[in-house]
Every structure is written in structure tokens, then in C-alpha cells.
Design a protein around this nucleic acid. Structure first.
Length: 604
RNA sequence: GGGGGCGUAGCUCAAUUGGUUAGAGUACCAGACUGUCGAUCUGGACGUUGCGGGUUCGAGUCCCGUCGCCCUCGCCA
């Protein structure tokens, strides 16, 4: 194959002096002195300066005057050293320039809607002209890093004897609980495919198929409202293995991450990652994806403060409420308005309010301090590890909202205070961004959660998740009530990185009998189970090996490793917050003819 | 579905308690200029202040509605 260009715009140095070269690229800038014209020619590898000298070649110089920003050109010429003292030390190619002998304009360009080197334009503009946004260095670097990460992952799994298998996009809904994107069937009007929320069932079938070690880098689709770290279509590393246990999966992913960090970031990642049980995570951090880069842990003071006469707290334990809080030291100087803002913050999570005390002269002060009995005050200060000038922040209420709001408050305060240690004794040496990337496994998730909405137990993970061994007998032998069931732990695990959930998985049930029992507890009838995933249950009749796996969110992982604050930044063509594509205008209406063919009548 | 922020020239932003002709930088156009590298200098052109309504002598500014983008709660592993 004959390449048009002999070099890229980033590789020529004084070592190439004298060589005749051909370069292709975009005109980054033209500096026209009336006489000499300098062109910065750019491609994704770098920038090279071209010179047009009217005395050497008048007609070529005339041509160069026509060149505008972002014209695509191809030039041939000789690599010459720049004049003494005129080198540009900021460029790898700064010691040389190209004395152009031939110029071909491959494509002209209209003025761009925004400056590639200027301030980053509004999201509307970036997404509408995403191809121009991608021309920016920053975007290219992120996309290249993403490629390297994915490439490193593929190489890792290939070397460990995994087989990448593609699974269908046109399929049935999998039991993950999010809304499906539906695709109408033309052959069967009124019937629909669903785009997969994940390849969950297929990967289990691959285990039944004896493939033993499967992985896939695969697109998944969920029709839910978006967030800074959520897109309607996103990419997962999907993994499933047979004849393994939970610890095997964790170790595998740790090894993979270590390799990715080494290959892509040139950083040594410490393994094994920290492990924390779901219960412990909830207790100390109020959430199941704790950011362990810093301390500022929560303290449960339900028992103590329920005894108080203060009616916000009194009898909380009897109402099934909890009282938890955190202590900032030394932060008694928070102003009234700052505290009001924090109160508004927790109210955003549905908390009734925020009770705040300052510790001064060994006692609590603040608007509502007088309602707390002296002996309880003393005990509270002790339990919360507070000291002189500490600020104690307390939320009371339903467990979920209390934990949610305090987990949010913890992150909020940490960001606000710049990772300053609140209490070094209880959170040793974990402040100050000492750790750039803090992975942790959250294990021992509950198998079920009670859904108040449905008045029914639902799967915390998905219905094929195996309970832990000690609970299996309980489930099989006797009838398990709702409260007992909510105590059962699953062989399920999540991977959190800097407070972001980047993965999750489980060991699956491979016993038909146990699966039946779990469906029973979930209120799924035999008929319904057969209807929704009968094909999986059938498969399990024919020798299903014990198996389990995990899925890792590639977009989120790339986002964290490239220090981006939004998932859009690591996706070439992302959707807006309202799941539209500003570039193509999708979703869009379709021809009446298309609808008719699909048997669809709009009832808007 | 709820809460919040933003929307002014192609782009990034400004515009005093509501005040008279809505500015700046950059990009664009024209001209000048032989060592620049964010080139420089001179001049020019560029606005339905997202859209619709209202209050007012007067609205970019206040009110109501609506659309778009972003953040967040719910939702979503």
C-alpha cells in the first residue's frame, strides 16, 4: 500500500534535516507576514510548522494565502532547520520546519462554530458538532486512553484463557428491573424485542454450554433518567466463570485492574483491594459504595439519643428510626448560614432536618443543646469522638433517608473542607488525597430487599443470585418469613472506586430446587418464572456447572482513570441528560409507512 | 415526576436599584506587514437578549408559561 504521507505531524526532528517528506493534516493556524507565511499543520500526532517563502516560490506562496483554518492539506517539501534562535521549545518538532515545495488542498473548511483551542463551548454546541469537539486534543487523549484500557482488558482475558462471545442485542427483557428499550417486530406485529440491560442470562447459558470462561466488552441499554455517571447506552466488561468461588472472581478482577493500571497509567496498584461488608459499609459510610480515600465515618447513636427527652430523638428506636451523625473537628466556627445550607442539603435527601451541636467547654452548645440531658451530652461527645470545638451533625429518621443524607453530607463536607482530617484517630492516614485511586469490594449484600411499593421481597441483585451457604438450609427446609428473609446474605459483591460503583456480580444459583424456593420468596409463580425465563430453567436441567461472574462499567472506569467528571467525556457520541442525540437528532419521528409495516398506531 | 442553575454576537462572557444607542475578547471580512509560533497593526461587519405572554412611561433585568442544556432527589446496579 502506498501511503500519501511519509510522516505524521508529530515525528520530525532535526534528525530528519534534509529529508524530503510528505505530510497531511489540518491547518491549525496561518501566520501571514505578507511575505513569509507560516502554517501550523496538525494531526493527532502533533504539529509541524510549514514555511512559504515568496522569493523562493511565488506561485506556491500565492496558493498558501488561500489556506484558512482547518483546511485539510497535503504538502511535500524538505525538512530544514529553523534559523538560529527561532526554535520553538514547546514543540517536539520545534527545531525544524518544512520548506514546502508542493501543496495540495484536500478539503477546504468553513469557519468553525467554535475555537478548538479556546474555552470549552456549551454542551449544546459540543454535542451538535461532536466531530469537531473530537478534533480537540483533550477528547482525542481520552478516547485513546479508553482504547488502551479496553485493549489491555482484552489482552488480559485472552491470556487467561477466556473466550469473548457475542450475545444478542435483539432479545427478551432480562430481569434487572430497569425500563427496557423496545424494538418492534415486523414479522410479529404487536411483539417486541428488548435491547439487553446486560447479557446476564446469555452468559449463564454459555456456562451451561461448557465455555467455562467467558468475557465480553458489550453495550447495554437502560431506559432510565440520566446522571453525570449514567448514559442510556453504556459499555460493560461482562465476565462469567464456571467452577469458581467468589474469591476467585475478586482476585481475577484485581489482577486485571493491576495490569490495566500498569499498562495504561504506569501506576502500581496495590492488591488485594480492601473488603468491607455491606452492613459495615452502611454503618460507617451510609452507603454501599464508600469512598475510602478519607475518613469522616458515621456514628450510630440511636440507642443513646432515643433516651433523651428531646422530642426529635425520644423513642426513635421504638419507631424503627435511627439516629446517626458525624463529627467535624475543629469546626465549631461554622456560621449559622453555613449550617442552614447543610440543613437544606440533607433535606434534599428527604431528611426532616439536621441537628447540630458545637462542643464548647466540654458541653454542647447550639440552638437545641439545652434539650439534651447533661449525662447524655457527655456520652454523646464520647461516642462521637468529639473534642473541644467539634461540630456534631446529626440526622434522625427512617434508616434509608438517614443513611442516604449522611452519606451525601459526608462527601459534601469532604469536598468542601478539601479532604481535611476531621478526626485523625479514627481515620488514620487516609486523608489528604494520599491515595489517588481507592478500590474496595463491598461484600455480603442482602439477598432480598423489601419493596414498600410492591409490598413484596425483591432481589437486591437479581433472582439468580445464590444465597450464602449458611442460609441455604434455612431457605430449603422451613418457611422463611419476610423479616428473616431480609437477613439472608447473598454471594454478591460490588466494586467501588473512589465512591463510584464500577462493578458488581454474584455467584449464581445452579440448583433448580433452590432457584424454585427463591422464586417462591420473590412471589414469582412457577408459571411466571416459566414464562419469563423458562429457557434458563430448562437449561439448568441439563447439567449446569456452578458459576458466577461480574460486570464492570467501562465508561465509569475510564472516566475515573482519566479524571473526567462526566461520563459523556469518555464516550465519542454521547446522549444529553434527556437521552437525545444532538448530532443526529435522535430520537426522531418515523414515516407513517414504517409504523404501518410494524403494526404500530400512535396514541399520543 | 420534584428541586436548583444556566440561556445575551459564530464562540466565551459583561451590562449598577428596571433607564435612554446591549459592550468586550475571540472568530469573521478588508487592508498593511519577510522569522512568526495565541503573530502584530489599522479598519469593518455581526444581536428576534432561547421562545410566548404579562407588569411598567420604560424589561436583557421583574412576573407567568414554555423549550433547551447542566446538576441533583426519586428512579436506575
Amino acid at each position: 500500500m502506498v501511503m500519501k504521507r511519509t510522516h505524521t505531524c508529530g515525528e520530525l526532528t532535526d534528525k530528519n534535516t534534509g529529508a524530503t517528506v510528505t505530510l497531511c493534516g489540518w491547518v491549525k493556524s496561518r501566520r501571514d507576514h505578507g511575505g513569509l507565511i507560516f502554517i501550523d499543520l496538525e494531526d493527532r500526532y502533533g504539529v509541524t510548522q510549514l514555511v512559504f517563502n515568496p522569493q523562493k516560490n511565488p506561485s506556491l506562496h500565492k496558493e498558501a494565502e488561500r489556506l484558512g483554518p482547518q483546511f485539510v492539506i497535503c504538502v511535500s517539501g524538505q525538512v530544514i532547520p529553523r534559523l538560529a534562535g527561532k526554535a520553538n521549545p514547546n514543540l517536539p518538532t520545534g527545531k525544524i520546519e518544512i520548506d514546502v515545495q508542493t501543496l495540495e488542498i484536500l478539503a477546504a473548511s468553513e469557519p468553525l462554530p467554535f475555537d478548538l483551542d479556546g474555552d470549552i463551548p456549551a454542551q449544546e454546541v459540543r454535542l451538535k458538532y461532536r466531530y469537531l469537539d473530537i478534533r480537540r486534543k483533550m477528547m482525542q487523549e481520552v478516547l485513546i486512553t479508553r482504547h488502551k484500557i479496553v485493549n489491555s482488558i482484552r489482552t488480559f482475558f485472552d491470556r487467561h484463557n477466556f473466550v469473548e462471545v457475542e450475545t444478542p442485542f435483539l432479545t427478551r427483557s432480562t430481569p434487572e428491573g430497569a425500563r427496557d428499550y423496545l424494538v418492534p417486530s415486523r414479522i410479529f406485529p404487536g411483539s417486541f424485542f428488548a435491547l439487553p440491560q446486560s447479557p446476564q442470562l446469555f452468559k449463564q447459558l454459555l456456562m451451561v454450554g461448557g465455555l467455562d470462561r467467558y468475557f465480553q466488552i458489550v453495550r447495554c441499554f437502560r431506559d432510565e433518567d440520566l446522571r453525570a455517571d449514567r448514559q442510556p447506552e453504556f459499555t460493560q466488561l461482562d465476565v462469567e466463570m464456571s467452577f469458581i468461588e467468589e474469591s476467585d472472581i475478586l482476585a481475577l478482577i484485581e489482577a486485571m485492574m493491576k495490569e490495566v493500571f500498569q499498562n495504561v497509567l504506569k501506576k502500581d496498584l496495590k492488591t488485594p483491594f480492601r473488603r468491607i461488608s455491606y452492613d459495615e459499609a452502611l454503618k460507617l459510610y451510609g452507603c454501599d459504595k464508600p469512598d475510602l480515600r478519607f475518613g469522616l465515618t458515621l456514628t450510630d447513636v440511636t440507642a443513646l439519643l432515643s433516651k433523651s427527652q428531646f422530642k426529635v430523638f425520644q423513642g426513635a428506636d421504638k419507631r424503627q428510626d435511627i439516629i446517626k451523625g458525624l463529627t467535624l473537628t475543629p469546626k465549631a466556627d461554622y456560621s449559622r448560614s453555613e449550617i442552614d445550607k447543610l440543613t437544606e442539603f440533607v433535606k434534599g435527601y428527604g431528611a426532616a432536618g439536621l441537628v447540630t451541636y458545637k462542643v464548647q467547654n466540654g458541653v454542647l452548645t447550639g440552638a437545641v443543646a439545652k434539650y439534651i440531658e447533661p449525662d447524655i451530652q457527655k456520652e454523646l461527645i464520647k461516642e462521637m469522638g468529639a473534642k473541644e470545638n467539634s461540630l456534631i451533625l446529626i440526622v434522625a429518621g427512617k434508616p434509608d433517608t438517614t443513611n442516604d443524607s449522611l452519606a451525601g453530607l459526608r462527601l459534601h463536607l469532604t469536598a468542601k473542607e478539601g479532604y481535611q482530617p476531621a478526626e485523625p484517630q479514627r481515620s488514620p492516614a487516609t486523608y489528604g488525597g494520599a491515595e489517588e485511586f481507592s478500590f474496595c469490594w463491598v461484600t455480603d449484600f442482602p439477598l432480598f430487599q423489601y419493596s414498600a411499593q410492591e409490598k413484596q421481597l425483591v432481589s437486591a441483585h437479581h433472582p439468580f443470585t445464590s444465597p450464602q451457604d449458611e442460609s441455604i438450609n434455612a431457605i430449603m427446609d422451613k418457611r422463611v418469613g419476610a423479616t428473616e428473609a431480609s437477613m439472608i446474605k447473598a454471594k454478591a459483591y460490588d466494586l467501588a472506586l473512589n465512591g463510584v460503583e464500577v462493578g458488581g456480580g454474584s455467584i449464581r444459583i445452579n440448583s433448580t430446587k433452590l432457584q424454585k424456593k427463591v422464586f417462591e420468596l420473590l412471589g414469582i409463580s412457577d408459571a411466571e418464572a416459566q414464562e419469563r425465563f423458562g429457557f434458563l430453567l430448562d437449561a439448568f436441567k441439563f447439567g449446569a456447572p456452578p458459576h458466577g461472574g461480574i460486570a464492570v462499567g467501562i465508561d465509569r472506569l475510564v472516566m475515573l482513570l482519566t479524571k473526567q467528571e462526566n461520563i459523556r467525556e469518555v464516550i465519542a457520541f454521547p446522549k444529553t441528560m434527556s437521552s437525545t442525540c444532538l448530532l443526529t437528532g435522535a430520537p426522531a419521528q418515523v414515516d407513517e409507512k414504517q409504523l404501518k409495516e410494524l403494526g404500530i398506531k400512535l396514541g399520543l
